[in-house]
Design a protein around this nucleic acid. Sequence first.
DNA 1: AATGAATGAGCCTTCATTCAT
DNA 2: TATGAATGAAGGCTCATTCAT
Lengths: 199, 199, 199, 199
Amino acid sequence: MDRKQAILKAASNLFAERGFASTSTSAIAKKAGVAEGLIFHYFKTKQGIIINILKEMLEQYIAEFEQTAQQELIGLQAIKKLISFHFQFGENNHEALLIVIRDFPHDLMAPGSPTRVILEDRSSHIINILKECIERGINDRSIRDLPAAKTAFIIHGLLHGISRLKMLGNMVLPDLSKEVVKFCHRSLDGFLATNNKPE
Amino acid sequence: MDRKQAILKAASNLFAERGFASTSTSAIAKKAGVAEGLIFHYFKTKQGIIINILKEMLEQYIAEFEQTAQQELIGLQAIKKLISFHFQFGENNHEALLIVIRDFPHDLMAPGSPTRVILEDRSSHIINILKECIERGINDRSIRDLPAAKTAFIIHGLLHGISRLKMLGNMVLPDLSKEVVKFCHRSLDGFLATNNKPE
Amino acid sequence: MDRKQAILKAASNLFAERGFASTSTSAIAKKAGVAEGLIFHYFKTKQGIIINILKEMLEQYIAEFEQTAQQELIGLQAIKKLISFHFQFGENNHEALLIVIRDFPHDLMAPGSPTRVILEDRSSHIINILKECIERGINDRSIRDLPAAKTAFIIHGLLHGISRLKMLGNMVLPDLSKEVVKFCHRSLDGFLATNNKPE
Amino acid sequence: MDRKQAILKAASNLFAERGFASTSTSAIAKKAGVAEGLIFHYFKTKQGIIINILKEMLEQYIAEFEQTAQQELIGLQAIKKLISFHFQFGENNHEALLIVIRDFPHDLMAPGSPTRVILEDRSSHIINILKECIERGINDRSIRDLPAAKTAFIIHGLLHGISRLKMLGNMVLPDLSKEVVKFCHRSLDGFLATNNKPE
DNA sequence: AATGAATGAGCCTTCATTCAT
DNA sequence: TATGAATGAAGGCTCATTCAT
């Protein structure tokens, strides 16, 4: 119906299937059943399309991420929920994730480019949410005493990396989500820390 | 001297600097001080160059990874060494890593493509080494009882993801390496597990 | 006016002058006063141009050939008219004939290729028209009793070969057309056959 | 054994299979099991190869053509033998004929080029032989009174055209040779001419 | 005679983008 | 809003040919 949405949908399909660089605007137009010029009417440039997709996805991810973080008061529980949410989101938004995580075009990350600003902004937002949960956990003793910022970054990297490896390799590792939760739980758990001093 | 090496070096520089897609073969030839045709004499296609870089890097990485895994007999210590090695390697091979991890061209990962086969093969090789160390650790009680394969995959994803986020964001997080070692240590440590039953 | 026609005209000139392989698309564009990209907008590939020229010429040739065949009721007269027509057509369409008959690119004749199908289809169409005229002639006794299909093929080959030799050699043999008519007349004439049994 | 012959053989195969333009010197070298440079040592240029093939074939053709022309004293019989010989030769030298007759590269026929000189020279030689036989036939009354030069050209065109159509179309027309002999016989036969005035 | 690394000009084609309608 | 003809720069790649060994 909405031509703009038709373009976005067609573009998402093709980007996920062939990658951004290998998808031509003419292919998008054809798939969307639309004249090529219309794409530029709506999105100005080809990058405009992927930026739009990127923004939409990140906004949704962050909104739900934030909401999830607030559903649990206990810090450790919140982190665990966030991890579960991440993999759940990946399953529900396979295509968009594929686009953003797999082969995000290098040009779009040129220093100072709007895309980069968006991405870094959102990325640090995510890390901040994680960090706040960790700090909350340290305060409520559910999480042991550790550097919150670095740990948040590590967890973010962990989630990003596992999702990416899964996409790149088409691997199907069932229940990996639960195992990741356990993996992080063990590392963060404040109860163990109280009674034992590791290393 | 060796023209082939000159091409590889020039290509590495440019791929790392501008990305694969934005680097023209003519630019590579110019930088290498070589006729453009020679590139195709040696590498057949432009992709041939990056595949070559990829292979070389992976071979070196795996060789050293394997060697590192055997330097420590205790499972947990081995894992910790491997993590440290990973980040050390990243610092010593910043450029190659940048090329391979940041914007590896999507086309090369088409299902069934030789590149993909290589990459998946090497990837599972790395995971296997991790897995063996984990199993060793479980046997020697340095690592608690946990599913070795899944955990290996998680650690691989963790390392991959953190390296990638660092590259994408140009972030400088000093000592992240040590923090990752600690993060994993806490999650794996068998001594804690012996005395306390988490969850 | 029509850019597409301008391209076709420029291409015809150049193909006839230098041959297909030695004509670059950029030269065509320049001569047509058009951006090079427009060629591919209309014809997809360089071969697309020559295929277009080929089709147009063959369609015109066949249409007129067919019409000529019906203008004369007597079989032998029809054949003679067709022969005359062939050479007349050659003089009026020197350029297109040059392109198609002289150095039609070998690739286009690969078994199963669409071009080949077109060419074979048209070729057998021409032979069929000749065959029908011969059969008509046999019935009306203007042509002696002979194998119609084979004879049609021979006449087609005769016309094709003479035209080609003329183009290749730039030879100017005036009135060859009339001589060919006589040559075939003598071979086909039913009146002679009725009164004399050769061999 | 002989490297030069190996090159010629490989080139013949490939030219016949893919056409001259689509065959690279490197492909020839590979097929001949020889370094690419050696081709240029022997033949100077790529065209040199085809010129060599061309010359060899034409020389053989003409030698046998000439010899055939002299085997029969009666003019008409000579012509008929020549026609039969032509098709016989085509069957025995399918590959070489394919190269020369099917898609002889346009460049090689540029006015004044050595190839063109050779080809025109040989072509008129063939026509001359035909012409002499016709004149002989006119003298010995086996052939009716007709313009010898033009008729020779027509027969040459006839043979060339039929052979070419056969190659282009992969058509298998059995016994066409005999039919062509008959076709020409009827047209030339002096006996009929003596008793009947055609047209 | 024989090799094959090295050259470099040139070509077809793709593609994002513009613009008149 | 919508079209699609038209642009033109840029790029990967092929290939005949040369030359040092």
